[in-house]
Simulated assay, not measured.
Amino acid sequence: MVQTTAIAYLIGWVVGTAVVYVASRRLNDPRNPAPHVLILSAVAGALWPMLLLGAVEFSSLMACSSAAAHLKSEAPELVGAGVVPLR
């Protein structure tokens, strides 16, 4: 199980590094290139589990927010004409 986890992490590291490197090369200003693009991409690729956990936390927060918005009820409906709500 440790080998499988290590291999999955290394594959994610390589894929994450490649994605960040390609994105940084594409979005980089050609007149003012960023220094050490490959090293920074490798560091960002190494942190891919943190990004994945952040995405999971964000999606769970959005799901809770959406559920809370659906649970809010409208203003209470008055049944009789002579009923006055106490505040």
Rank of each mutant, 00 (worst) to 15 (best):
A68M: 13
A8P: 02
I39W: 09
Y9H: 04
L27P: 01
V19D: 00
A75W: 11
R25N: 01
A69K: 11
D29Y: 04
S24N: 05
L61M: 13
I11C: 04
M62E: 05
K72E: 12
A81K: 15
V83C: 08
K72Y: 05
H70Q: 13
A81G: 07
T17M: 01
W13Y: 08
Q3A: 12
R26L: 07
A69W: 09
A8C: 08
V19F: 00
W48A: 08
L10A: 14
A44P: 02
M50R: 12
M1D: 08
A63V: 10
L47V: 14
A46H: 03
W48I: 08
I11M: 05
L51M: 15
R25F: 01
S41F: 02
R31E: 12
A42I: 02
R25A: 01
A68Q: 13
G80N: 13
A67M: 09
L78S: 12
A69V: 03
P85T: 03
N28D: 09
V56D: 05
V20K: 00
P35D: 06
V56A: 11
L51S: 15
Q3K: 09
L27A: 09
V22S: 05
R87F: 10
V37I: 11
M50W: 12
N32K: 11
L27D: 05
C64I: 04
R87H: 10
P33K: 02
S41G: 10
C64Q: 11
E57W: 06
P33Y: 02
L86C: 15
I11W: 04
V22I: 09
N28Q: 13
P49S: 07
V37N: 02
